[in-house]
């Protein structure tokens, strides 16, 4: 592998030489010196610019303010909240709002609208019950089924990654010949974070220390989801899955 490096290097030199030849005559010595001056000035100012353009630190403060498993405490005391309360909650973010069109007249007590509380995953993982995350509200305010997904705001090392969570995808599934049910599909969320490493390979004297600092683990994220499902009041519903269900009449 090393044998090819000189040729790669020569190729690289050739590209640089060609570029230098093409622009070299257009850039005078004085302009080059000025360019260097500006570049060095930007470099010298970069610590201040980095501080100026960086996060103010508010996000870090918010993390400490969010109680652990905050979304679970809401789910436990769901009757104390309204949809509007959750929308205004600083610790939650509205990740998605989905509208599923149905005709309430097509359903009755004998033929209820089924909300299937056991999900399947797009990537073919094992099935999981998700009734723990649902609050179903019967209301006259809607004609169709409206699902609002809340996510407890999530941070990694002070950086908010809430909006990188994939919303659950709700859909109507043909359940039997005459019946449809509400089901959901989960996609794994790929969360991306950028982290700056120092130029450590140039160091020798503190290598043991820096190696220790280098070892890092990706922390678990304290976050969770709440799905507030609004259904028309006159719609007969049946939740298929484990009880108790969180229903607001």
């Amino acid at each position: 592998m090393y044998a090819i490096l000189p040729f790669v290097f020569l190729l690289f030199l050739g590209v640089i030489a060609a570029l230098s030849y093409s622009i070299g005559k257009k850039i005078s010595t004085k302009l080059s010196i000025r360019l260097l001056g500006v570049y060095l000035l930007v470099l010298l100012l970069s610590p201040f610019l980095a501080a100026f353009t960086g996060n103010s630190g508010d996000a870090v403060e918010e993390i400490t303010n969010i109680p652990p498993d905050y979304y679970l405490s809401i789910l436990e005391n769901y009757s104390d909240y309204t949809l509007e309360d959750l929308q205004k909650d600083d610790f939650l973010a509205v990740l998605d709002e989905q509208e599923i069109s149905i005709d309430a007249e097509n359903f009755s007590v004998e033929n209820p609208f089924i909300i299937f509380t056991s999900t399947h995953h797009a990537d073919g993982w094992s099935d999981r019950d998700f009734e723990n995350y649902l609050i179903v509200e019967k209301t006259t305010a809607v004609e169709d089924v409206i699902i609002t997904q809340f996510q407890q705001r999530a941070f990694i090392s002070g950086v908010e990654v809430t909006d990188q969570f994939e919303p659950w995808q709700w859909f109507l599934e043909q359940w039997s010949r005459d019946q449809q049910r509400l089901n959901v599909e989960l996609h794994r969320s790929d969360i991306q974070l950028y982290s700056l490493w120092p130029l450590l390979q140039a160091f020798q004297f503190d290598q043991a220390t820096t190696n220790r600092t280098f070892a890092r683990e990706i922390p678990s994220i304290d976050s969770g989801t709440i799905h507030w499902i609004q259904v028309p009041e006159r719609l007969s519903i049946n939740l298929q899955g484990k009880k108790p269900f969180r229903i607001i009449d």
């Binding site: 060095l40 930007v42 470099l43 010298l44 970069s46 610590p47 610019l49 980095a50 353009t53 960086g54 996060n55 990694i156 090392s157 002070g158 950086v159 908010e160 990654v161 990188q164 991306q192 974070l193 950028y194 982290s195 700056l196 490493w197 120092p198 130029l199 450590l200 140039a202 820096t210 600092t213 280098f214 890092r216």
Partner: peptide, 28 residues
């Protein structure tokens, strides 16, 4: 040597300007 000293802050500044989910890193 001078340009390398400031490479970290420069990268930090560029990352602040271009990336929403950026953190400087513990070692840095």
């Amino acid at each position: 040597g001078i340009t390398m000293i400031f490479s970290g802050p420069m990268l930090q500044m560029l990352a602040n300007l271009s990336l929403g989910t950026f953190q400087p890193g513990a070692a840095y």
